[in-house]
Design a protein around this nucleic acid. Sequence first.
RNA 1: GGAGAGGUGGCCGAGUGGUUUAAGGCAGCGGUCUUGAAAACCGCCGAGUGUAACAGCUCCGUGAGUUCGAAUCUCACCCUCUCCGCCA
Length: 422
Amino acid sequence: MLDMKLIRENFEETEQRLCSRGGSSYLDGFKELDEKRRALLKEGESLKALRNTVSDEIAKIKDKSQVQDKILEMREVSNRIKVLDEELKQVDEDLNGFLLTVPNLPHLDTPTGLSEHDNVEVRTWGSAPQFSFTAKPHWEIGEELGILDFECGAKLTGARFTLYRGAGARLERALINFMLDLHTGQHGYEEVLPPFLVNRESMTGTGQLPKFEEDLFKTVDPDFFLIPTAEVPVTNIHRSEILKKSDLPICYAAYTPCFRREAGSYGKDTRGLIRQHQFNKVELVKFAHPSESDQELEKLTANAEKVLQLLGLHYRVMLLCSGDIGFSAAKTYDIEVWLPGQSCYREISSCSTFGDFQARRASIRFREEEKSKPEFVHTINGSGLAVGRTLLAVLENYQQEDGSVIVPEVLRPYMGGIERIS
RNA sequence: GGAGAGGUGGCCGAGUGGUUUAAGGCAGCGGUCUUGAAAACCGCCGAGUGUAACAGCUCCGUGAGUUCGAAUCUCACCCUCUCCGCCA
């Protein structure tokens, strides 16, 4: 959520920066609602002040015959207040509902552009493996090895669900443990294991609601949502809290499955593990002091990259342009891993700073000084990494001519010493 | 699922219709005293909104209601705890 004051006082500039996302207007209607709200507030508050003082007087008057006039007068004032409060409530809801649908301001570092074609390559690591044979896509490798059963996933649930078997299931679990151990052991994150279902408030805090309900799976009774990323429960750990400045940055690493409807992507990435309704992810989440959030994003991105480096997987880092960043994000790096079976780079991690956008929605604050007013923290998060996509990257990059797959050395301790899946 | 108890500031906790501007305590901050510390004593000490700064207004789990006036009364809901039942 954007700061109302900022919009009020820098209307044109704010609108202009928002428009770099590609829309033609984002703040239409704000001024009218804001002015109406302030007018109602002013009138209502002065009547309440009157009521409070007169009520006090009534309490102090002993001679009850003198009280009747005042009571009658205040009855009318109260009725008027009731009407104003109702109008105000409506306007407040409208204004709040409006603000909740306005996306975040792009960070000044975010390049202006309309689509992914305007994203900027920041760096690359490693190089694509060379094969003396034609590299296969992971769905062929996985099916031939009997470790990925897409048909059975479809039978059990439907499209975009997969059954992992044997070494495939174990490799997924190995990757989860490897990533968690790295981030908690080497990078200073605290491991958390949150609920996979959350309430509406949590979803609103991080920005999935109210705008993107159609992307979420939900339960009917009670009204809960399956998390689309651990970002949601983990960021909401500190919802409505005032954190100690000395505790910042707070860094969490969490493994969770993620559930996404993928509405609107019918026919896209239908084969293999790329786009599933349920997938595993290790997520990194930080709560940082505003002056340190930029460098914390760099560190978090480096922490995610480290996973790929240790696995020996070639990748590139893209800085997303204003037209390609998500609704809540101010600045985003995508890490894209090389997939030889498909001869392309695919996103395997998305690392973003949200500025105070989520913190304002979820009311996550800190104090600069012991006695100073609470200020909003900055939130930062990124995948470290998407596990299913990492598994498929391992399959495609470590495939051998005979159809077997070499297990990267760092994963062998997690695989009971297995060096090759065949 | 059944029965009961309860939700008040960072924490503990009083408060059952009107000096409650939410008592008191703990923690925290500032000061006096002290070579320094502790103790003692004095003062400050919730959030939001709003203002140049005051003032004002709102907030006692959430929402609705009664009243001139609600932390306090009524209704609904949410959450926590205890016991019983069921259960990984």
